[in-house]
Write a protein that binds this DNA or RNA. Structure first.
Lengths: 334, 334
DNA sequence: TTGAAAGCGATACCAG
DNA sequence: CTGGTATCGCTTTCAA
């Protein structure tokens, strides 16, 4: 527990003022090469490291980014945060991680508390707050980038979930399916509403009726939720020959429901998921799904945020990136 | 972008000294109830929040914990970090996340850089640094808890990987397997060496020879690495009737190798994994594996760390927790 | 090119 | 119980 070396120690040891040490540290040029070398040598000898805290107090920024996710244990967000860290770390930024546990109230509290922790900016994933509430909290931060959520005037990176659903519907239609059901997620989230809208509009565009009886909603978009919803839907609508599932987990549940009801996949029912999680290629039959590069999403969001912080995005206001997913065709819907 | 209200503003507005505001903030008692109420009212009215940075400079602690993981995109570490956050957050602590990308050099650099970011303590997962190097870096921090790594004099929470491997070997022996191979991980990690040791000693204890020809090493402990290692091992040693795999991913790769080589699982070869990730129950056949509650590990580690920080662990030096895994029997090794 | 002095926004210590 | 003053470790501003 050695006592910290401070800038004053270095200054004394090198026979210069603290200011000169600071200049050597930040390498701002206004220092002669001779003193620079001398100071650096002392810094090295004493193993001195400037305190981020003190520096933060003086400069008003901390090179820290707040990352708010519903649940880091969810691979979707874990990948995003890995992508964000990979981009932020080389730029000297660290991520302060917060889990909302999918609770909007907690999300609002976290966004507020980050303020006093003095982060330079915030990456916010899949916010479920109302526009008004979100706008208010966002306005308190110097820079914010939303992931899978949009808000006027705020930068964002979103997977084009509308397109992801449309791609799958088109694929099923091409393979001759005509009664396509959907296992939907919550409409409270950006992804949930967009995926359902993609389904509806694609059918309508193809001149097919959008039958509410073909829409089931998963209580929770996981394997169990997908199983229950699929089971109910398939029993009520035996003519269904294709299924658009909210995500790969729900689709996995649907596979089980099909097996139990004796419906062959893909012969009787073609099943499609979304997200292309590890699981998708490992279940039997492997899932046709849509994929967006999640680490790339995290990196893109971090890049936008750093741009705002560096001021290199000056003037261009906010930017919104839309990541187009791609269709991955496997055995469950060839 | 309203200008921040500082403690001075509150003091002026309330007609008291900054010190009194500070006392109201920290509620240390030494303040009359009347002034307390008055100050709190002003704080509320101005929507004042103390700056964590300034506070950190004065108190020398930040209520931030550094969390160093090989890869947050790996479910194992994502779960641990979720568990740690769930415990740390209510106590007012935040997690600063760092990925080492499985690179020991980067790990050392991160441990060093956290120091200047002034975290109060560090949770370090699966360190691959040498004892000397690790001890040196650890000594620079006020408090450190290691996860899946031990070091004399440092608190730790470890899954009993030795036991996890032994449980599986015993299970295979009970079911009549006699030529048991192993897909090992890197010996550089605690888990890697312990799992391999569990395999060796269990065989020896059962009076069976430990044949080096039955040991294959995965270049990377993922599906591809497991596949490659299993393929090589099974081709060289066709008599193998049981397989202890480093983790569930490697075991999943082994399943594919078996399928390609025409070895039936579990009839010809019983396959076991470790960690019980989501995937384990979803592949065909479902994997027999060992499981430890990962969120509980993260929470336990955070609890130890907070104990050290609060001083409530005073005197008792360091503590080491060992989490016993349990055997989960599924179709791949009944 | 260098240094002295004044913050940044809080807490700690000591008087009263 | 309350207030003045020094302090935390660094950057910024202004002179020299």
């Amino acid at each position: 527990m050695s006592f910290r070396v401070s800038i004053a120690d270095v200054a004394r040891e090198a026979g210069v003022s603290r200011q000169t040490v600071s200049r050597a540290l930040n390498n701002k040029g206004e220092i002669s090469d001779a003193t620079l070398q001398r100071v650096l040598a002392v810094i090295d000898r004493l193993d001195y490291r400037p305190s981020t805290i003190a520096r933060g107090l003086a400069t008003r920024h901390t090179r820290t980014i707040g990352l708010i996710v519903p649940d880091i244990a969810n691979a979707f967000f874990a990948d995003i945060s890995r992508g964000a860290d990979d981009l932020a770390h080389p730029a000297g930024y660290s991520l302060l991680l917060r889990n909302t546990a999918e609770d909007p109230e907690r999300e609002a509290e976290l966004l507020g508390s980050l303020e006093q922790r003095a982060v330079d900016g915030v990456l916010l994933c899949s916010s479920r707050l109302s526009d008004e509430c979100l706008a208010d909290l966002v306005s308190r931060h110097e820079a914010v980038v939303l992931i899978n959520r949009t808000l006027p005037g705020v930068s964002s990176v979103c997977v084009d979930d509308f397109c992801g659903a449309a791609l799958r519907v088109a694929h099923l239609l091409r393979s001759g399916r005509r009664r396509i059901g959907v296992l939907s997620g919550t409409r409270m989230s950006h992804s949930g509403s967009e995926r359902e809208r993609g389904y509806r509009e694609s059918l309508a565009e193809a001149g097919l009726p959008v039958d509410p009886a073909l829409i089931a909603r998963c209580a929770v978009p996981d394997i169990e939720g997908g199983y229950a919803a699929a089971r109910g839907l398939l029993e009520a609508q035996p003519a269904i020959d294709g299924l658009i599932c909210y995500n790969d987990l729900a689709a996995t549940g649907a596979l089980r429901a099909c097996a139990e009801l004796g419906r062959r996949v893909p012969d009787d029912v073609a099943v499609t998921g979304a997200d292309d999680i590890l699981l998708a290629r490992l279940v039997t039959p492997a899932l046709t799904t849509v994929r967006a590069d999640r680490q790339a999403i995290g990196a893109a969001a971090a890049r936008l945020l750093l741009g705002q912080l560096d001021g290199s995005a000056n003037g261009c206001g906010c930017q919104s990136l839309v990541i187009e997913p791609e269709l991955v065709i496997r055995a469950s819907a060839p």
